[in-house]
Amino acid sequence: MHEDAVPYVATGDVLRVAFVVPLQGPTGIYGPSCLACGQLAVEQLNRVDGIAGRAVELVVVDAGRDPEVVADEVGALVDAGRVEAVAGWHISAVRVAVTRRIGGRVVYAYAAMHEGRDDTPGVFMLGERPINQLLPAAHWMREQLGVGRWAVVGNDYVFPRVTGATARAALHGTRSEIVSETYVPLGTTNFRGVLDTLDPGRVDGVIMLLMGQDAVHFNRQFARLGLSETIHRLSPAVEENTLLGGGAGAHDGLYAAAAYFDGLGTAESVELSTAYHERFGPWAPTLNAVGESCYEAIRFLARMGQVCGSLDVAAVGAMAPGHFYDSPRGLLRLDGNLLNQDVYLAAADGLEFVVQEQIARTT
């Protein structure tokens, strides 16, 4: 604890969680879905046993700001004892900053797809990763669509950079290859210079590692130039909010890989969808992989509390490996601090996704 921090003494048996989700900036497009899914998870838990027998309360932190600003706010909450865990969806640049500030002190349920392992005590990486998301999707598109010459277009921070490098190394020596990589600042709105480099004679697929509103702008401009007719797109991050933002005509030939889609149709996913729309009505924020991941993170904390008796970092760190549990994504298995999960590939159809195939399974 910082020397000037004042300990917070809880009134009542409440467990407060810093809920770190974007409310502004390029990734702010996800915010309403994140907030609604987090609220639903808390309401469901508090109708039963909460987390480890304590009522749950979310303390919302806006993750759409500079990573160091977000990390300072989360750090201040932890320093003062006002929160006992951290959860939510946010870009990996924010995760790195938050982990540097509070790593090892409280449990941190990171919901987003990610570039790989983070061994900081108490950090759990709940999202998809290249080995079970992007790479099997690229393989499927090679086999089914003949797409093998990929251009990577991503935002310039840790997740796109590391994921692009992973794809380049993994595809080397196969029938697929990365022929170019371009990274642009988060918040880019004009992609004409990037799009002009996409020669259909040299490239037949784009791996999009663009977040939120950046992906919306890219998809609109991509379609406007007629590139959809000759070049496919693959993204681990595009979800239903992005489709709505882009408009129905911007997504021909666009594929997404994720552990959850609103139209997935499994028994587990339908249960969440039904509860969500009953709670928030027909005008609810779009239910999608990003929002669902926030629901997943809160429910994960509850599962840890149930198994370990508390969210103390030492207690959860002592949990036996290979722990299985059920979620809206189906059966999940905790492997160290990573989750193994089923992953699906879906094709955009106007403003919706149509699942094509399951490309990874829980192991």
Rank of each mutant, 00 (worst) to 15 (best):
H232S: 09
H232E: 04
S235C: 03
V238N: 06
E239V: 14
E240S: 14
T242N: 14
L243E: 05
L244H: 15
L244C: 11
L244S: 13
G245P: 11
G246Y: 02
G249Q: 13
A250V: 01
A250T: 01
D252P: 00
D252A: 12
D252G: 03
L254K: 01
L254M: 06
Y255M: 09
A256N: 05
A257G: 06
A257S: 15
Y260E: 02
F261V: 04
F261I: 03
D262Y: 07
L264V: 10
L264E: 09
A267G: 14
A267F: 13
E268I: 10
E268F: 08
S269H: 04
V270E: 15
V270Q: 14
V270N: 12
E271M: 07
E271C: 06
E271K: 10
S273I: 08
S273N: 10
T274A: 13
A275N: 09
Y276Q: 08
H277M: 11
E278C: 13
F280E: 13
F280D: 10
F280G: 10
F280C: 12
G281S: 13
G281K: 11
P282E: 14
W283C: 12
A284I: 11
P285F: 10
P285I: 14
T286N: 14
T286Q: 15
L287M: 09
A289H: 06
G291T: 08
E292F: 03
C294E: 06
Y295L: 07
A297M: 03
R299F: 02
R299G: 01
R299V: 00
F300S: 00
A302P: 02
G305E: 08
G305C: 07
Q306Y: 11
Q306A: 15
V307P: 08
V307L: 14
G309L: 12
V316E: 08
M319Q: 07
A320D: 10
P321I: 00
G322R: 01
H323E: 11
F324I: 07
